[in-house]
Design a protein around this nucleic acid. Structure first.
Lengths: 256, 256
DNA sequence: GCTACTATTATTGCATTCACTTTTTGACCA
DNA sequence: TGGTCAAAAAGTGAATGCAATAATAGTAGC
């Protein structure tokens, strides 16, 4: 009764994750599989903690086990899957604590991005973010949540880009991928009364950015993410029963 | 004439990098190779940009190509090596810009760690850091650079640990590994006149930590890393000629 | 003597195969 | 009927083999 949300339209920020290592992922079977498998997992096609039988995925992608296993190793190092010795790969299940940790790290990265952005951003980019901000404000007034979140993501992405730090951008994309499944749901669970608060925070963000107040912006962004964290963790606790067996398709039996 | 420095004694912080994914690296050949190869590269046994022929490494580790290739893929995703399609792996050569970016990201992570530490650190841990601080001050007075840097690293590590955020700790270890080679050299190149400055910054750090002034500590730590960044980049520029062909053993011909 | 083209060699990418561990199934015993 | 042990099945970990691409050397032409 709650989720039949069109995935792609709301979060088209594949771009962020894709950019980071697009060079090596475009050619070579391994790279393609890595990208496809990552997307497949991030989009929530396998249940949390669900087993990932190699053979099945091989059949699904039409390849042999070698490149698939290479991709799994990389995804494990990215924190998306767990690799149990001799017992296969599982989609990494995030505990509430890990989720909170991830949000804090995201907060740290955005905080850094804001600080650096104040050093490097150009007037024109501030103007663009300003434009987005008011557009988002329009969504807020019209209670258009989907539009709001789309632009919201875009603004944060623009700030990260304005840091002019590609290493930071790659790390940001990496961590964003790890929480995207949950963040997606959490956005919608966000209490309406918090919406106004978030909007106010965004005004502070814009203001600090205009004044190039790096340290200040840094604080605001961290606090902003802390509030998102609270919403996400709260949502996770509420729905923790449902998340164990979500949608699924493959062998989802999380028996143990 | 300049570098015959005992590696291990100065930077025994293998621990940091090892902790992050020690679970999966202890058993399984792939994991062991991953750890060994990472150490091998981090310790600077292959020249920057030097080719890494699979066969040779296989012989060196006494294994077949499969687990080695898996390890290389992971190291590529960690940013330690470049994987050129059909043309093998090379040790990732850091430009001055990338090095600066990495230091800023480290600054962001330490900044975050400081903020979180102020929320979570216990009195006893502050006391321990305080103790280390004064011990380090002793090294400063005695002009004992090696001791200074060892304790310096330890203090930063303790702050990161006090964040109580294992995700952050893992990310920190990851990025630390990427700059360790250069950082190692850069520490020694650090101008003596900057030493006093660094020592003063550390007093600010301790003070902010005592007062649990998270936001303030966050600023100080970022700035502290910025100064380290300046020293490292400066050193890199000075010695850029020498770094291309360092020590080397394997096929180091960085002909292109 | 230098450049361009071809043939040979070496190396990478992926598939396949073999060995070993885990899991499951079934039988025997309590 | 329930539990334990054993044997078979399934799945993973790593090595080998094969095809394709890039690097190298050698030859011919200018």
């Amino acid at each position: 009764m709650k989720r039949e949300i069109p995935n792609e339209t709301v979060f088209p920020d594949h771009s962020a994750a894709a950019i980071s290592d697009a060079r090596k992922e475009e050619s070579s079977l391994h790279g393609e599989i890595l990208a496809r498998l990552r997307d497949y997992i991030v989009e929530g096609n396998i249940a949390d903690g669900g087993r990932i039988p190699e053979r099945q995925l091989c059949a699904m992608f039409g390849i042999s086990r070698t490149p698939l296993r290479e991709a799994l190793k990389v995804l494990a190092s990215e924190g998306l899957v767990d690799l149990l010795p001799n017992r296969g790969a599982r989609v990494r299940q995030l505990s509430a604590r890990e989720l909170a940790e991830l949000f804090d790290v995201m907060g740290g990265l955005e905080s850094l991005a804001g600080r650096l952005a104040c050093e490097n951003i150009e007037e024109q980019e501030v103007a663009e973010i300003e434009r987005l901000h008011y557009e988002m404000y329009g969504c807020y007034l019209h209670r258009d949540m989907q539009g709001y979140f789309r632009i919201n993501q875009l603004i944060h992405q623009k700030i990260v880009e304005a840091s002019r730090n590609t290493t930071l951008m790659a790390a940001y994309a990496n961590f964003a991928g790890r929480i995207r499944r949950i963040r997606y749901s959490a956005n919608f669970a966000r209490k309406r009364e918090r919406w106004g608060e978030a909007m106010r925070e965004h005004e502070l963000i814009l203001d600090a950015l205009r004044r190039r107040a790096g340290s200040e912006l840094s604080d605001i962004l961290f606090q902003h993410l802390r509030n998102k964290q609270a919403a996400a963790v709260e949502y996770m606790d509420e729905t923790s029963v449902h998340t164990t067996n979500r949608d699924q398709s493959s062998t989802l039996n999380s028996k143990k």
